[in-house]
Nucleic acid binder design. Structure first.
Lengths: 144, 144
DNA sequence: CTTGACCTTCCTATCATGGGAAGGTCCATT
DNA sequence: AATGGACCTTCCCATGATAGGAAGGTCAAG
């Protein structure tokens, strides 16, 4: 299986498959004489694994750990669970943060006439340099 | 007021103040003879405005729009409200996405013994290349 | 006049992702 | 066998908001 077929089989773009190779996350099973990457079932499954993990919001770093546990037949499920639980806590924290933002804005928007006049509680709020509860902080690997 | 004082007054790092200058978001009121940036109350308020807007999760793009409305005394509050409402919808969508991830993981984790044995429903789920409901997609400007 | 704290510009990196160029390879159809 | 198109390779560049650091100029207090 070359990279195009692997891409079709997993839904991971060829670009990303090359990237995973580059960062040593998933290396091709071999190279053909003409230097084409060759993937077999093992790698295909790993790519699917990554795709699914990514869709659950795991960071690349967490995925690296998960993948190494997945490869280790003797892993203790405790370790996997720990990663997942940490990730859930992380998600929950970010959800709460965004909910707070949304609530604040809903309130401000509710108080805004939304007509032709310039008076606007939303701008008023932004203008009073109130300190936000916390500086906004988001995880490195959860971008884009 | 030079950049260091502006930074102290607003909580925005000098680095970022220079960046906002560079991208024409907030330019210094003037430059001293020795080329130091000088800020006055106007810019200080704008920097506070940006900080607060950022803490509410607005993208730089939205902030650009909000700032231009804020500068426009005759703006219709309708436009401000529209931006805020769009942003709230956006937040809600991302919240829902993350909640779905968290729910899925909570379920899987709940089913995982978390002991010394290797069997793990979390890894099992990642292994079955189930397609995720939607490819994960996040907004450009909401990074880090 | 020196020292240290500040300012300036310029360059580098992040991280996952994609776009594109230049050039090699494979296969099916003339 | 030659051609053409679809594929592969590597390499470079960009993103967005943010930070780190180097090299050099400026200011104010001692």
């Amino acid at each position: 299986m070359n990279i195009g077929q692997a891409s079709k089989a997993t839904g991971v773009t060829a670009k990303m498959i090359r990237y995973y190779d580059e960062i040593d996350l998933v290396r091709p099973a071999s190279r053909t004489d003409s230097n084409y990457r060759e993937y077999d079932d093992r790698q295909i499954n790993e790519l699917r694994f990554i795709k699914r993990a990514r869709s659950l919001g795991f960071s690349m770093d967490e995925i690296t750990q998960l993948l190494s546990l997945w490869r280790d037949r003797g892993r203790p499920s405790r370790e996997v669970k720990a990663i997942a639980d940490r990730h859930v806590a992380d998600l929950d924290a970010r959800i709460a943060e965004m909910q707070a933002m949304a609530e604040t804005l809903r309130h401000l928007s509710h108080c805004c006439a939304g007509d032709d006049r310039p008076d606007c509680p939303i701008l008023a709020d932004l203008t009073e340099g109130k300190e936000p509860s916390d500086p906004v902080r988001r995880r490195p690997s959860f971008n884009r």
